[in-house]
Design a protein around this nucleic acid. Sequence first.
DNA 1: AGGCTGTATTGAAGTCTGTCTATGCAATGT
DNA 2: ACATTGCATAGACAGACTTCAATACAGCCT
Lengths: 117, 117
Amino acid sequence: MSKQEGGCCEGLSDAPLAEDQAVELATMFKALGDPVRLRLLSLIASQPDEVCVCELTPAFELSQPTISHHLKVLRQAGLVESERRGTWVYYRVRPETTDRLAAVLATATGDRRVAAL
Amino acid sequence: MSKQEGGCCEGLSDAPLAEDQAVELATMFKALGDPVRLRLLSLIASQPDEVCVCELTPAFELSQPTISHHLKVLRQAGLVESERRGTWVYYRVRPETTDRLAAVLATATGDRRVAAL
DNA sequence: AGGCTGTATTGAAGTCTGTCTATGCAATGT
DNA sequence: ACATTGCATAGACAGACTTCAATACAGCCT
C-alpha cells in the first residue's frame, strides 16, 4: 500500500502536510495513543531482541484477548512485527517506523535544518 | 497541572515505562492520532512564529467549532499554546513537548545511548 | 489420535470521539 | 448602546474504541 511520497520531506514544519500523509501518520500516532499499547511497546523495546507474548500478557491486569488485540493494533500500525516459533509468538520493534515518527516530531520544532530522513 | 517527573529517563526502551508516564504520554500521542489535528499542528509549525485561527479554519472543510475543538485537544495535550491579541487568537507550537515525544520515540529504536533529555 | 497450552478471532456491552447546529462571550467599530 | 465579527462552549448523535467471555486455531507431547 502507498507508492506515494514519503520521499524527502518528512518534517511537520517543512510542508503543510498533505491529507494522505496525515491519515497515514495519524494511524501510527493513534496506535501510540493508549497507555497499554505504550507500555507494551516499551516492554518490547526494552528487551535486546524480541519478547515472547507469554511475557507480555502477565504484565498487565487485562485479559489475554485484550493484550492480543493491542498487539494487533501495534502490528497493523507498523510499529512492531511478530514471528511464530513453535508454540510461542515473539514480537520486536520496527525501528524504521519509530524513527520516522521521531523525525516528524523533531522537525515540528521549527527546526528548519535538514529533517533527517 | 502535573509537577511529576519527566526527570531523567525518558526513552521507551530504557525502562519498562510506568503506568503514570504511560497515561501522560498516551494523552499526547492520542492528540496526534487524528489527521485533522496533525494537519493543524503542521500548519502551525510551518509558520515562522504563530498562526491566527482565522487562517486555520478556512484550510479545512469542517465547521469552525470542530476546528476549535481540535485546537483545544492540541492545547490540553501541551502541544500548542494560544494567545489572544485583540479580536484574533494566535497559536504556536510548544517545542518542549514535540521534542520530548521525539526523544521518547528515538530511543524505542533500541538505541541504548543517552536518550537526550 | 487425543489432550494440553499458547495465541488469535468473534461477538457483544459500555465508553469515548469527531462532527454538527445552536448559542455564548470578547473585542472592534459605528 | 448596538450591531458585527472572531472564537469558544454546550448539547446531540453516529461511529469508533476498549474490554470481556466464548470460541477457534496452532503446535507440542504422550
